[in-house]
Nucleic acid binder design. Structure first.
Lengths: 143, 143
DNA sequence: GTGGCACTTCAAGTTGACTTGAGGTCAAGA
DNA sequence: TCTTGACCTCAAGTCAACTTGAAGTGCCAC
């Protein structure tokens, strides 16, 4: 039985964001007191879950689908594992880039392009972004 | 002395992207052959650097500023270190979330919200996204 | 010399997640 | 009763990094 202002205060989100989430079907109000939305305590959990999903890299649509799967928090385990694997890849990439940045700060090479560490970072930067720098090891056939 | 099509082929970028980068001042063509832009080999290096910068989380504006600092690839070392630190934070956060996701898949708790691992992940998900879940340890005075 | 097509310009559209603004409603306190 | 101000709706705007489309130009092969 909390109103949108209280929800905003407690979640740290703006009222407009909460309305937007309701419009997107991510949360529900339990009714109206006049014009004003009334919410259940449980939407705090929902909002936390949404924040977590966003931090994990899911879109609001993804999150909506997950919620839609069941009456509670029925989350698709396959999607979760898939995302965890993607995070693994992303973490490795970011780690390489982070190390590369630190290296660059100290690297005395006149042209970074010629430094092996820099090249390694380049290769890690985007799987295929700069094909010319890729090793011709595996030329994937996938799209 | 390469044209935009060749540059696109070698970089994996679209011609429209290359034109856009030129418009933004990130690269320069060395002239025109009729209407058509002509590029130097060195722009390949620039494009690689841009891809790397983007992968490291810099905006095109940031990248433009870095290039503007000097005639060559004079990159602001402070900015690099700062970004490396931010990557550290991001990597830690993503690692927690990844582990949290994997945990969730196996966690038998009826309500994830009540699971300590899940809560830890929540806390990591966004520094302040869900203030209600934060430990009341340090109430930062910064904005 | 001419036809085709790869290039050109410039404006407008796209995506995702919101925010903003204008104009309206209504519950509560003075 | 009247005012206030927090809420409401709905459309439109924002941001970044591009992409798309329409309309035009000119190099090169034939």
């Amino acid at each position: 039985m909390i109103d949108i202002a209280e929800l905003a205060r407690r979640s740290g989100l703006r009222a407009s964001t909460i309305r937007y989430y309701e419009e997107r079907g991510l949360i529900q109000s339990i009714g109206r007191r006049g014009l004003r939305r009334t919410f259940d305590e449980a939407v705090m959990d929902r909002l936390a879950l949404i924040a977590l999903g966003r931090a994990a890299g899911f879109s609001l649509d993804d999150i909506g689908e997950m919620f839609a799967k069941g009456p509670g928090f029925e989350i698709d385990r396959g999607r979760l594992l898939e995302r965890a694997d993607q995070l693994d890849t992303q973490i490795k990439k970011l780690t390489l880039i982070r190390d590369g940045l630190r290296h660059t700060v100290n690297c005395p090479a006149p042209r970074h392009i010629e430094c092996p560490t820099f090249q390694r970072m380049m290769r890690a930067a985007g799987h295929g972004l700069i094909p010319a720098l890729e090793q011709p090891t595996r030329r994937a056939s996938s799209s």
